[in-house]
Design a protein around this nucleic acid. Sequence first.
DNA 1: CTCACCATTGTGGATATCCGCATACAGCCC
DNA 2: GGGCTGTATGCGGATATCCACAATGGTGAG
Lengths: 204, 204
Amino acid sequence: MNSMAYIVDDDSAVRDALQWLLQSRGVQSKAWDSADAFLASATSELYGCCLLDVRMPGMNGIELFDRMRAIQCQLPVIFLTGHGDVPMAVKALKDGAFDFVEKPYDDNALVDKVLAAFAHDKRRIARTESVNLVRQLLSQLTQREHEVMQRILAGKLNKVIADELGIAMRTVEVHRSHIFEKMQVRSAVELSQRLSALGDSSAS
Amino acid sequence: MNSMAYIVDDDSAVRDALQWLLQSRGVQSKAWDSADAFLASATSELYGCCLLDVRMPGMNGIELFDRMRAIQCQLPVIFLTGHGDVPMAVKALKDGAFDFVEKPYDDNALVDKVLAAFAHDKRRIARTESVNLVRQLLSQLTQREHEVMQRILAGKLNKVIADELGIAMRTVEVHRSHIFEKMQVRSAVELSQRLSALGDSSAS
DNA sequence: CTCACCATTGTGGATATCCGCATACAGCCC
DNA sequence: GGGCTGTATGCGGATATCCACAATGGTGAG
């Protein structure tokens, strides 16, 4: 899926100017004239970034931002605003907005920000996908296998695990084997590392 | 070490007001009248947060912020500014400032932000310390032990490692044993998990 | 020149892990 | 009832890991 800039602004002149600007630098874009219109098509399947006007009739950009997060749309958001408002900018950024730009904006700088947001989104997607892969693999495990895996990750020996679960060591070995197979690893070390992908939804 | 608010403002009235305000909520503070004066005492050993005036004679708050980061002082920073300046607020926050507050500020809200910054700093310190512990343990390993450990973490068998390094399996076993001992773990799984602390300097 | 540390290797045994081959029972779907 | 999956168990062997005891050679510090 190609990265795309999703523009939401009630002013058609602004939308056209943005689309033309982005087009001139080879960035694809789509535009909506209201937050509601955009939300109707927003999913977690969009790639790229959002350019949201803060002040719009009806739902404003900030509310739209909250709604997007509420429906698991994690697209990076660049706010555009005509009136300097520090508290709003601060809140938006602390809530995870990618940037907050005052109009009139510098054309080149804005496109650079869009491209930076694209790069950010690609990293986000890569992280999300690796997390989803692990989750998908984990979902294949049975309850018992989860119990055994948890103890394997605690570094416990099969014998200890068998005692704790009140089953034979041989049974633990079988579970262990199935766990490795389903998780597509060949050792406890690889298993540990595969799962560590879940812990560090890090960086930016 | 107790958390403390480090105030830097050229206006003594502002400093006094802040200290009085913080004191009223039980927050300890120290104040400086210039960025240079503060930098002279700033180290990576401070705990709590900074309250920096943006506009000051000589070095301003933003520059001070950059300098602090340059000398590895990772204290969370709350900027105080008298004149709304969105680009500056955005840049500060994107560079990692904790907050950016316009004067006149709401007393209670500001103290709440300071307390939030304290909590943030405590998490940062906890992460830093766990990372430092691992680094300290790692620094005890010899070059050869590093080479072996790297291969253990790749899930390789002692036999394979021995072949790769052109040494006997027995030697690898000895290294392995020393690695576990120095890293204070009892299995490759624990080793993997201990090192995963380095990867995820996550969250906030 | 000792002493400590590092890297290296060997022998041999106690444990653990990995696996194929088999069996068994319970629950579920067709 | 027959097929399928999940759980459980046993036997036995091939590998691997863990470890104590023992030894050699190099290097840098005192």
